[in-house]
Design a protein around this nucleic acid. Sequence first.
DNA 1: GGGATAATATCAAAGCTCGAATATTATATC
DNA 2: GATATAATATTCGAGCTTTGATATTATCCC
Lengths: 162, 162
Amino acid sequence: MGDNPSPPAAGEGKRGTEGHLGYLLRQAATAYRQRMEKALADLGVTAPQFTLLTMLNAYPGLSGADLARIALVTPQTVSVILANLERANLIRRTPHGRHGRILQAALTPAGQQLLIEARERVHALDPGLRAGLTPRDEAVVRQWLATVAQISPDEDFQLFSR
Amino acid sequence: MGDNPSPPAAGEGKRGTEGHLGYLLRQAATAYRQRMEKALADLGVTAPQFTLLTMLNAYPGLSGADLARIALVTPQTVSVILANLERANLIRRTPHGRHGRILQAALTPAGQQLLIEARERVHALDPGLRAGLTPRDEAVVRQWLATVAQISPDEDFQLFSR
DNA sequence: GGGATAATATCAAAGCTCGAATATTATATC
DNA sequence: GATATAATATTCGAGCTTTGATATTATCCC
């Protein structure tokens, strides 16, 4: 390695609370996502797949375009994940009755079964996410996260136009 | 789309401050990363590339393994990004004098030049990241992010062993 | 009805990310 | 010194993600 001035260890200096806010945000999200992937690995499901399964469980019949809007990713991304989920027999897609192009997705029984187990593992990570947060502090954090998430890159997209 | 019970819009119900903390974290990080990519797009540099450039600017001579530890990503990931940066002539890698296998990376003049402009754009996003945060709240948020980031998936990795 | 506009889904290319495996070089142990 | 262990870098395969492009189907407007 470099034997120049040593970078600070995690949690110290620029790598701790002193750091750039965006950098801290990325670090936290990365660390949490990795814990999540690890918890789900032996179920053969990824974090993004879990996210879509959860959404489809709550709102069956959503289209790929719908899911893309909710999940803040592109329709192309959703398309890939849905294809993988369908191949694994965790979801099924059926053409919408009246609207020709739309494919409505829903969990298969296998998908529902797996989601139950997966949700349990993900929820087990929650305590680590609240580490030493008072209820008031948690409210602050929630408010901040929601605000940062809400400011969309193109501010004018429309959800569920009808 | 599905004409079943409509999902809440962004910022409402489960998609707002009521949502799962991990889900909120992912949303915020995704939104911020997208804004960052957009700000950097016409410079021909990606967000992960910007991250490594910033680290190499602060600590020239780091190895790929070093960068991986600092950035909380795998050596494989760093390897890919460094290869792309080298191909774009933004960094250079030279073998370490005494330690045979190690490649030390450092910014080229072009890399330094580009980083100046890139940093300016990324810093321009800061106000949106502080949206309505009092200094005290910001401290709470920073503390929380650092804590979440610090809890590593395998808790026993060693930074800069010597 | 017919043509323009918009929405949906998908393909392709590029980049990021990880787990697994491999080759090379240091270091530790005997 | 010889062997075992560890660290570094890389290749491979799979999945996620984006931008750009294309085909299909609804909808809007005249």
